[in-house]
Design a protein around this nucleic acid. Structure first.
Lengths: 119, 119
DNA sequence: CTACAACCTAGAGTGTACTCTAGGTCAAGG
DNA sequence: CCTTGACCTAGAGTACACTCTAGGTTGTAG
């Protein structure tokens, strides 16, 4: 199956603008075009975009996503390097979760303090 | 005890610029000054700043922090409202953690896929 | 055939949260 | 005295990640 940019926007939750922006930035391997230069996305593109969102949402910058995309384009010889990057990303996620849990207990403490003040 | 802006920067990890910025924005109740207009922070200011960082790091915007600060300045009559805001913030943290866990398993899945490709 | 929506490009503009600059004051050490 | 470093203000500049605009093309429905 193939999709227009509008359909991909629907499917991924990214705006049409952002899809073009991501392609220009090299976050997405160049998308195929039809005779009149319109983008034609396939399922692999959509999967890749969803995964890119996953990286972005866990704190990866556009530059890092770009690097990851370039490695993907280079093929199997970079698989190990990509695994390493993903392991690093997992570590970042773990830190984020731990930080959030710490912050959560600070907020709990504050709520308790306020509640005492109240009673 | 009282502290200069430089000491507070050290203690909170915020830059001197950011401390002045936060005050200008109303995130911090106005700080006392000495005869020559220099800021003098006390322990309560530092505690408040640390808590503000906690809110910021869990996704609260400057505008929301400002609102929270304004309520604090208004005194005990706003305690309930502040508790509500903090409960909402806890909910946000919970969503963030859940999202991170989901993203984590997507990344695990990708790593597994890459590893199969490798062997 | 024409209106309309969806698409195209290059490049400008926006929002958020800082971060820095210029030009000046102040207090302590040599 | 004079230099040095920490401080002051107002306001300009930056980084990031979009987001939008202007001006134009394409293709389908009425």
């Amino acid at each position: 199956m193939s999709y227009t940019i509008g359909q991909v926007a629907q499917e991924t939750g990214l705006s049409v603008h952002t899809l073009r922006f991501y392609e220009k930035e090299g976050i997405l391997p160049p998308v195929k075009r039809n005779e009149s230069s319109r983008r034609i996305y396939d399922s692999a593109d959509i999967e890749w975009l969803k995964f890119a969102c996953c990286l972005r949402d866990t704190g990866m910058t556009i530059d890092e996503m770009k690097k990851f995309a370039q490695l993907t384009i280079q093929g199997q010889e970079t698989t190990k390097e990509r695994i390493t990057l993903l392991e690093e990303q997992k570590e970042r996620i773990n830190s984020q979760i731990n930080q959030l849990l710490n912050r959560m207990s600070m907020i709990d403490y504050k709520i308790k303090f306020y509640s005492n003040n109240l009673g």
